[in-house]
Design a protein around this nucleic acid. Structure first.
Length: 268
DNA sequence: ACATTGACCTGAGAGC
DNA sequence: TGCTCTCAGGTCAATG
């Protein structure tokens, strides 16, 4: 689940639950999740510290700490945050738990352990180190910058949208939604799109992601015209009713409507 | 250099 | 019921 809209929801969740109270302990640390930091270092850095603010870049969440530095969270394919007090509210696969002085805990749950936890001096230096492209919802990521990413790619447009080094935040599900809303077939070469298609994709990207954030990344609350809630096995196109099709593109499963997203230009 | 593939983990659901 | 197989919303190293 965790693409840009989901991580933005997690960021707001952390903001509204976990700021400004003192961290008293890390009662649970799964070493498999740590990247570039030891369990001891993480404990030493966080204990007695407080979170003072948050930031997000693409699919990464940063929690600013009172004494400097940031905790960096990445959620992999199955990660999420849960803030709780009673152990019967503990999530099913907690990999990190941060205990606060008021008795509450913040858990990072990651069933498949594909997420990552690390420390960095600040968000900007982490982003540089990872060579992430601009966050796709950043105002500076304008139509021109978007067009340059597509023009410079030799991959399918779906892969280009998901390339975190060119633009950060879009994953498998939202790339499908953006392509569907723009009426663009996922397998078309990014560099061969017409100018009109690039413009349509750009505005679909901004609109889809903003809408998803606004609806708390909950597919049940998405507009009726959206593909995401219907991407299951026997889903139908919300616009024309045709059976959705699947295609493997760079190893990921694309879901699309064969009638609304033609490979050749023309009718839609 | 770039794009694509397979490995990394674990669990849910389908099919037998 | 229980077993096996496939698949899952991400990333990285290895491969072509």
């Amino acid at each position: 689940m965790p693409e840009l809209p989901d991580v933005e929801v997690f960021r707001r969740y952390l903001n509204s639950t976990s700021l400004h109270s003192t961290i008293t302990a890390l009662p649970l640390i799964d070493r498999d999740m740590l990247a570039g930091v030891s369990s001891a270092k993480l404990k030493k850095t966080l204990t007695g510290n407080r979170f003072t603010g948050t930031a997000r870049h693409g699919k990464y969440l940063f929690a600013q700490m009172d004494r400097g530095g940031v905790l960096v969270l990445h959620f992999g394919m199955t990660g999420f945050l849960k803030y709780f007090k009673n152990s019967d509210s503990e999530p099913g696969h907690p990999r990190l738990e941060i205990a606060f002085s008021d008795g509450y805990r913040l858990a990072c749950d990651a069933q498949r352990k594909l997420g990552r936890i690390s420390l960095a001096a600040d968000a900007a230096s982490f982003v540089r180190g990872k060579k992430l492209g601009p966050d796709v919802l950043d105002k500076d990521f304008d139509r021109k910058a978007f067009a340059e990413c597509l023009r410079g790619s030799r991959a399918a447009v779906k892969s280009a949208l998901m390339n975190q080094h060119d633009m950060a935040g879009i994953g498998n599900v939202y790339s499908d939604e953006i392509l569907f809303q723009a009426g663009v077939h996922p397998a078309l070469k990014a560099s061969r799109l017409k100018d009109g298609q690039v413009r349509t994709l750009y505005s679909a990207m901004k609109r889809v992601l903003a809408t998803a954030v606004e609806r708390r990344a909950d597919p049940g609350k998405f507009p009726a015209s959206y593909l995401v809630p219907r991407r299951g096995r026997d889903g139908n196109c919300p616009k024309c009713g045709a059976a959705l099709k699947s295609a493997k593109i760079s190893g990921r499963t694309a879901r699309y409507c064969p009638r609304c997203q033609k490979k050749s230009a023309g009718t839609g």
